[in-house]
């Protein structure tokens, strides 16, 4: 494409980056035409991520382990990502596809923002992500499932929101917290008894960290804080000030506190 100049007529893609990729004959990985039958590929799976609302926004936490059957595939995987300045996305399921989904989603949001001069509304972002998950259904039917978790702050009201999804592209707004991945059952049971509506940032991070430790205790695929190697869960905080990635020092301190609470 370099050296050919740029096509200046405004072609059909509009503000959608995925549609633009199609005009270049490029497809996202999961748009590979489905083969028949169930595939049983040895691919890494990402597990337990969660998001919860607190008084001034939302936080999102994810463990760092990816598994391949009963083997640890990666110990330092990142599952929580900034989607844009005011929202974050986390992934569970087939890791390779999920990371690609996040990359495309991030590019979509940025592409829209640059072309239109404004960011999509939080609701608009969640709807778009649901559509992307729905597009992945043929792969999901073959066993390559990707389920994201989405959270962010509404730039107009300043309120935090959490959205969960299912394999057919269902989009559900959660009132207090959401979690997905193999350890999500344990994480949610823990959060159900400890969560309150008026948490401040530090206690929200601490409770989420405890839930993750509890999940890692019960679910073999979930990796808890790894003190020996210095690997700690990823945490992001989103408020009306923007998104902030917690430093390793901060997450390590919270993980230490959580390990003392969970027996």
């Amino acid at each position: 494409m370099i050296g050919d100049g740029l096509p200046v007529e405004v072609p059909p893609p509009g503000s959608s980056f995925t549609d633009l990729l199609h005009t270049y004959d490029l497809n996202a990985k999961w748009e590979v035409p489905p083969e028949t039958g169930h595939v049983d590929l040895p691919v890494p799976e990402a597990t337990t991520v969660m998001a919860l609302r607190f008084e001034s926004g939302v936080i999102m936490v994810g463990d760092r382990q990816a598994t391949e059957g009963y083997t640890v595939a990666h110990r330092r995987m990142q599952k929580v990502f900034a989607a844009d300045r005011y929202s974050a996305v986390a992934i569970s399921g087939t890791a390779g596809l999920a990371i690609e989904l996040v990359r495309l989603f991030q590019t979509e949001l940025e592409h829209y923002e640059k072309l239109e001069g404004v960011r999509l509304s939080l609701d608009g972002k969640a709807t778009y992500l649901a559509r992307m998950v729905r597009g992945q259904l043929p792969m999901a039917l073959q066993g390559l499932v990707v389920i994201p978790l989405f959270c962010g702050v509404d730039e107009v009201t300043g309120n935090g929101h959490v959205f969960t999804f299912d394999a057919v592209g269902g989009r559900y707004e959660e009132h207090d917290f959401g979690s997905t991945g193999s350890g999500s059952r344990e994480a949610k049971s823990y959060l159900r008894t400890t969560y309150t509506a008026d948490l401040d940032e530090t206690s929200a991070v601490d409770i989420a960290m405890q839930a993750l430790v509890a999940a890692a205790d019960q679910d073999v695929a979930t990796g808890g804080p790894d003190i020996r190697r210095g690997i700690y869960p990823n945490v992001v905080v989103v408020t009306s000030e923007g998104l902030r990635d917690l430093s390793t020092d901060e997450t390590a301190a919270s993980a230490q506190r959580a390990l003392e609470v969970i027996r």
Partner: peptide, 17 residues
């Protein structure tokens, strides 16, 4: 404006690829 849009498309596709 048409050139601006074309530029953003060019850059985003390249950065993604």
């Amino acid at each position: 404006e048409a050139l601006r849009v074309a530029g953003i498309r060019h850059a985003d596709v390249k950065g993604y690829q």
